[in-house]
Amino acid sequence: MMDRSEVLDILERHKEASGQLMSILESLQSKHGYLSQEAMELVAQETGRSLTDIYGVATFYKAFSLEPRGKHLISVCLGTACHVRGGPAIAEEISQQLNIEPGGTTPDREFTFETVNCLGACALGPVVVVDGHYFPKMTTSKVGEIIAKAKTGLDAVEIDTDKRVFPVEVSCAYCNHSLMDPHHMIDDQPGIRVTVSFEDKHGWFVLSSLYGSYKIESMNPIPRDMIMHMFCPHCHAELIGGAKCPECRAPMVPMIVRGGGVVQICARRGCKGHMLDLGGGTLE
């Protein structure tokens, strides 16, 4: 089940400095959703640490799970503020709808449900967090809706309501030719079209021009975590800068934003690392 090379890849990435056990375990956890015994044994073997230490760290922190988790994580806050505003009733409702106890995972591995003691968002209470999305002032009647939403994917962007999402128009950093493709709409906006190559494959690749949306379309299906090379379809120069992704250290792909500034996106498929520099401060 576990891919040995994936673990080795993560270990390789953290090789630079010693004492990176926490970040290694964090990467493993986000990759597999949990820390398997084989993965931990492999980490012990490769880093030369004792398995006892690794197991101690993995069981100490609640952020690490030794059991497989579901695709979606629902956390209900039961801190004092959320508790008095009805957190337990919401936890109960979710428990019933998913038919699992707090800390459990549904048999189809879709949902993991847990209660947390405080999310530090007491003013929004009672708070429920689903896959990193905060739902403030929850009620039991909203539970069903949120579970349904989580299934379809909360990363789907609501263009009309979300102010953090805005379209950008970009051009090639080398020939300054616009990369916008009005014939290829994504999220109802013209897409950003580049040529992409990886392994021996070569083809077009269109990204959503909405800053905050991660929708893409591609001629060739791109495997997750593949580092792509992107080229300008006009001057055929490779779009590559010196920057490294803040999330995964893969190279960043720079593009000029019309109106001034540079947007950089991570070349690794699936990684959401990006930087936006509009002349002023940097937005990550």
Binding site: Q37, M40, S50, L51, T52, D53, Y55, T59, F60
Partner: peptide
């Protein structure tokens, strides 16, 4: 080594 934390803390071998 030590495993877990708080009231679940225990001593034993990994797994």
């Amino acid at each position: 080594g030590f495993r877990g934390r708080g009231q679940d803390r225990s001593i034993g071998t990994p797994f």
